[in-house]
């Protein structure tokens, strides 16, 4: 792969603006993520973090700005095409496939990512999970700690487990960029700590880049290399977690709306 001038950045977001009814939810945001880097995206509620995620993965079309992955513009590309390029994510509002079991969540993810689902294969009854697929599914389930619930329907799982299912579903597709949207919301302290450990481990093992939106700052501090702070649709600070958190602008954004 030829290295161009900006190939150093895996994801490059430039001047992205997305408005809802005239109000800018994301307002000229620029930042980039290097391969293998883990970035925390924090900010008060309504700062535009989820909206930014939706712009990156294609669920929303920004009015202005460009988003590039590996130097390739994603503008005009459908969500599923971006997913096949290796953008994986989890959702703030849990989005699981309600009548499927945990294992099928992972299998469907593998097959969608590498376009392995073919009608003729189904018709010839060649679509049973392969040994290779089962092995990979088991490995990922083991990693996130869902092995004992592989054959449970997600409708019988609690919110915490559903978040893990989402994470596993994203991980098995071996994303080059994982975007996790408040993975710890709805989890208890213990589960949150476990989740943090899992995130750190997979990030190191698989060497993927990650953007973590999270309200639990302790977890952010543990997991990320760099932190971007958003407020009212704009990036207000960027840098190492401790430095950023010492920034008075950041403190006021947080203190103003939180405590």
């Amino acid at each position: 792969m030829a290295l161009t001038a900006n190939a150093e950045a895996l994801l490059r977001v430039s001047e992205v603006t997305k408005t809802f009814g005239g109000v800018a939810a994301v307002d000229g945001v620029s930042f980039s993520v290097r391969p293998g880097e883990s970035v925390g995206l924090v900010g008060p509620n309504g700062a535009g973090k989820t909206t930014l995620f939706n712009c990156v993965c294609g669920q929303l079309r920004p009015e202005r700005g460009t988003i590039e992955l590996n130097g390739r513009s994603l503008n005009g590309m459908a969500t599923f095409e971006r997913a096949r390029l290796g953008i994986g994510r989890t959702y703030q509002r849990v989005e699981v496939f309600s009548d499927m079991n945990v294992r099928d969540h992972l299998i469907v993810s593998v097959r969608a990512r590498w376009r392995q689902g073919r009608l003729w294969r189904d018709l010839c009854n060649l679509s049973k999970p392969t040994a290779d697929e089962r092995e990979r599914v088991d490995a990922v389930l083991d990693l996130v700690g869902l092995s004992d619930r592989a054959d449970t329907s997600v409708s019988a799982l609690g919110l915490g487990s559903c978040r893990l299912v989402e994470l596993a579903r994203a991980l098995i597709a071996e994303p080059v960029l994982l975007m996790a949207d408040e993975p710890s919301s709805g989890l208890d302290v213990h589960e949150t700590r476990e989740l943090g450990a899992v995130l750190r481990q997979v990030q190191r093992d698989q060497g993927m880049a990650m953007i973590l939106v999270e309200h639990d700052l302790e977890m952010v501090a543990e997991v990320v290399d760099r932190t971007v702070v958003m407020n009212l649709g704009q990036v207000v600070a960027e840098g190492h977690f401790d430095t950023v958190m010492a920034d008075p602008i950041v403190r006021s954004a947080y203190l103003g709306l939180h405590e």
Partner: peptide, 30 residues
């Protein structure tokens, strides 16, 4: 044939789509 499709990849894609179209496209289902 319908059962094969249902239990095969296409059936799983469709199940994903019914469950959450957002997440289905998010994992690469067209």
């Amino acid at each position: 044939l319908v059962l094969r499709v249902r239990n095969g990849s296409i059936g799983r894609f469709l199940g994903a789509m019914r469950g959450s179209s957002t997440a289905a496209s998010g994992i690469g289902v067209n």
